[in-house]
């Protein structure tokens, strides 16, 4: 199952459409990390609303992805983690250290606007 990646202005938006296998997730990671450079994106949003399980592998992959994207100069926000999934993740002992999270796509976009604007100011 491929995850469509949308380019919207300075951002890339990947919205996961169905449960992903490990290979799908790794492919998503590779695609996003390479496209961030291709499109000179400043932010990436990964929408995980449809995922009803985030196990250690998924968490580890998303975190690694966010760190790689950071190294390539962009921010990552994971949006749409469901209440049950969040609960299960903390029970399992999983955290997304160093990764921004937001309630949904809308909040994610607001957060990215906020953060990338801040960066702009600092850069100037």
């Amino acid at each position: 199952m491929l995850v469509p990646i949308l380019k919207q202005g300075d951002y890339l938006i990947a919205s996961i459409q169905s449960e992903l296998s490990d290979a799908d997730l790794l492919k998503l990671r590779d695609d996003l990390v390479s496209r961030v450079g291709e499109f000179h994106s400043r932010g990436v949003i990964v929408d995980v609303t449809v995922l009803d399980v985030m196990d250690s592998f998924a968490t580890r992959t998303l975190r690694a992805m966010a760190h790689m994207i950071m190294l390539r100069g962009a921010e990552t926000v994971i949006v749409g983690i469901q209440p049950e999934v969040a609960f299960s993740m903390v029970q399992l002992g999983l955290k997304l250290e160093g990764v921004e999270t937001a309630l949904d796509l809308e909040e994610g976009l607001t957060l990215l606007d906020h953060r990338t604007k801040g960066d702009n100011k600092r850069a100037r």
Partner: peptide, 10 residues
């Protein structure tokens, strides 16, 4: 259900 599915996944 989510806890069970996650444990099975692991």
């Amino acid at each position: 259900l989510t806890l069970i599915a996650t444990a099975i996944s692991e």
